[in-house]
Amino acid sequence: MNYDLQSSNFRASNVPNSTSPESGLKRFGDKRISDLLVESRQANVNRQRIQEFIIEKLLFAGGMAAILFIALIFIFLFKEGVKAFFLIKPIEFIGTHILDFDDNRVFACMWQPVGESGKYSIVPLLIGSFLVALPATVISTILGVGCGIYLAEIASAKVREIVKPAIELLAGIPTVVIGFLCLTLLATYVQNAFHTTFRLNAFVGALGVSLVIIPVIASITDDALRAVPNELREASYGLGATKWETIWKVVVPAGISGVTASIILGMGRALGETMIVVMATGNAALVTGNVFSSVRTMTATIAAELGAVPQGGPQYCALFLVGSLLFFITFVLNLVAELIISRMRKKLRL
């Protein structure tokens, strides 16, 4: 709607007096500041446009590069891995018939990739990986989430200032050092404590791997909980909740998506961890459910064998197949984490 001021019933005396907008404003010669700005912008406008264009494309390229690298890695792994199916019968990746001591034919899952009749069952490697990763995830969930809660909710600013960098430092210790400690010290303690048959076993490896993923879980949990708005804590205290009730019933549920993500990421790390398990788990490819038995993980197998096999041979391709499987498992794990998080977000509308 347009108002015609002239014809409306305003009396001139009701209208506030206006002065010229020009008076009293800073001038450079005959130019106002705005004139200078407009002029200098004119001069820059082309350069600016090119700058914007380049920066935008660079950032885009950066984003695309990450996807490209993943795609390339996957294609390469898969291309080499799939060759294994032409060199080895698919059933042999699960197991082969062998003769036992009484000359009976039995079906056995063995990883014994040497000689004419190499055996390429992936089963013991899968079992090995999970026998290390699952206990490691459980241990570091308990300690890592506990640590994250402590850092975010309980520790004073002073304590936090010391503890948080210390935990992050833990993540920076080279894994070979941790593996070394596991091999020499921890393995002995574990054997003395649990009277295990094997000195180096999945549990020792799991403890070592925990040291690496506890900082990951603690750090992400801490971030997730600190992102929970203070208003929720105040509301909880305001209803008479104690500190523990506030943490357990309000803060942790509100930050649960981040906590879950940290655990799943930690498990991905645990599955992919190599150096510690090479050194600490005994590297015997056994089919077992016992965490105190020696195991050989997928990562340790690749690390130990790939450097010493002829390219293109059955063992070489089988190792690539193991690598593809590992890649696939961690990919699915991350996907599941993403789904859980987005479902929770939707449910809570965070």
Binding site: P229, E231, E234, A235, G238, P253, R349
Partner: peptide
């Protein structure tokens, strides 16, 4: 007893702060 005090004295805050439940 702080718990009892805060039960007797309820509070409503500046920004609505329902729990994500």
């Amino acid at each position: 007893d702080l718990v009892d005090l805060r039960r007797r004295v309820g509070m409503v805050f500046q920004r609505p702060n329902p729990f994500p439940k």
